[in-house]
Design a protein around this nucleic acid. Structure first.
Length: 106
DNA sequence: CGTGTGACGCGAG
DNA sequence: CCTCGCGCCACAC
């Protein structure tokens, strides 16, 4: 095989797909799991042009703040989260309670 | 090989 | 609480 080395982008997509419903992950968190804890911005770039079938709505900024580039803005993001059962307080979500990590228990 | 770029992160005032 | 600004790094051209 030419390369079994998945690109950072591929890793991110794979991770986002692993986020269960009702849980949240931050960009920096995903970036770290993908191999670069400082490439949080890269994760955002992928989100905008990544596979729209992925639950990007479960991906939020550090602290649980909604994504500003989401279709419809943070308002659209907030409604998308409610569809997953996540209630966004103002423009923020209880990330302290819904923050999820792979490998760890759900 | 060089440059630009952004759905971010965080320190400082 | 808020605003401002720089760093940061994978990826496209």
């Amino acid at each position: 095989m030419d390369q079994d080395l998945p690109t950072f982008k591929e890793e991110v997509i794979s991770i986002v797909r692993t986020i269960p419903k009702g849980r949240l992950m931050t960009y920096g968190q995903i970036a770290a799991l993908a191999g670069s804890p400082r490439a949080a911005r890269i994760v955002g770039g992928i989100a905008h042009f990544g596979n729209p079938s992925l639950p990007w709505q479960r991906v939020v900024s550090k602290g649980g703040y909604l994504a500003k580039g989401y279709p419809g803005g943070v308002l659209g993001h907030r409604q998308a989260l409610e569809k997953d059962g996540i209630i966004a307080k103002d423009y923020r979500v209880p990330v302290d309670e819904l923050l999820w990590w792979p490998d760890k228990n759900e």
